[in-house]
Design a binder for these strands. Structure first.
Lengths: 167, 167
DNA sequence: GCCAATTGCTTGAAGCCTAAAGAATTTCGG
DNA sequence: CCGAAATTCTTTAGGCTTCAAGCAATTGGC
């Protein structure tokens, strides 16, 4: 999946190659961290990353959320959430009920034990992340935040202009 | 080294949270770009990202690679490569043969048409990436490269120390 | 009130991914 | 040369993910 960032990309004198290399390095970093987090979550809590992410959303919403809300927040498809929730209800982490006012709507929330379990996971998770960024100075962290913010904006702009072109 | 008064102030309140926020932003950026790339590959060439990545590896190896080589380079499981290759052989992009000297080994390479198709995709791909990073100055790009390099090292160090602990 | 459009969710098909177990083949110590 | 160990690949079971199609309930124009 990942092209190793040290691998030489198409050799051209132009500056496009630099951006490609930057992208590959960005991807490598993310995959490295994500892989670690997945592994540790599995090892320590026998839980997958998508389930952790879903619980993280619900932890911030004591009154529960609808499946659509979750889907938007997590930026994944509706069908995806359906399956995820199904398994988390099955394992006792989530509670699910049909809305009283709109019978199309399903409201889900963490169960008491689900919340307790999530809090434990989240606490460790944060120390893992902090540890993985351990070599970066506070200044590095700020600078990375700034540059990634700029990147995010740039990508969104580019994505919007493409979306506008089609049709 | 000069520490301005601001540096310390920022450091005081729970710096773990900053690293978590950094991680989330990094993840958002990567997902944004990856999503764009997936969408465009699908739209323009009706190909998936994993297939593109596999072809990219093979393009750099005119004499072909074994499945194990591919698996290591791409950092994915063996079983995964088996299925990916199967579909790419099916679609005529890849050629596959059993090694003459070791009958356990499968050697795969791009077909003529597969290579031609890949080259077209790769060229466009590079312009997409370049476009998405368009708002970043050359200096930004260099700085991001540097900080991500540092991050990569830090994560690897942390991952190694964990791997060492679990006997 | 009626019906068409919209909204919320589920289902199904296809693909990607892993870990673990299994099969075929080669390697190597004795 | 023999058999154990290692290597290469495939298979299987389970989970995640999307898109597209479909169903049920609600809303809004008339």
């Amino acid at each position: 999946m990942i092209l190793d960032s040290e691998t030489k990309a198409v050799e051209l004198p132009d500056e496009h190659g630099n951006e490609l290399r930057l992208w590959l390095r960005l991807l490598t970093c993310t995959n490295l961290i994500e892989g670690e987090v997945r592994g540790r979550l599995r090892e320590r809590f026998d839980v997958t990353l998508p389930r952790f992410d879903l619980m993280a959303q619900l932890d911030k919403a004591p009154d529960g959320m609808t499946l659509s809300d979750v889907s938007k927040r997590m930026m994944v498809s509706n069908g995806n959430v359906t399956g995820l929730v199904e398994r988390l209800v099955e394992s006792g982490h989530l509670d699910r009920r049909t809305s009283e006012t709109d019978r199309r709507v399903q409201v889900i929330r963490l169960t008491r034990s689900g919340r307790a379990e999530f809090r434990k996971m989240a606490a460790e998770h944060q120390t893992w992340i902090s540890d993985m960024f351990g070599d970066l100075s506070p200044k590095d962290v700020r600078e990375l935040m700034r540059l990634l913010g700029k990147t995010k904006g740039s990508v969104q702009k580019s994505a919007r202009s493409r979306a506008g072109e089609e049709r």
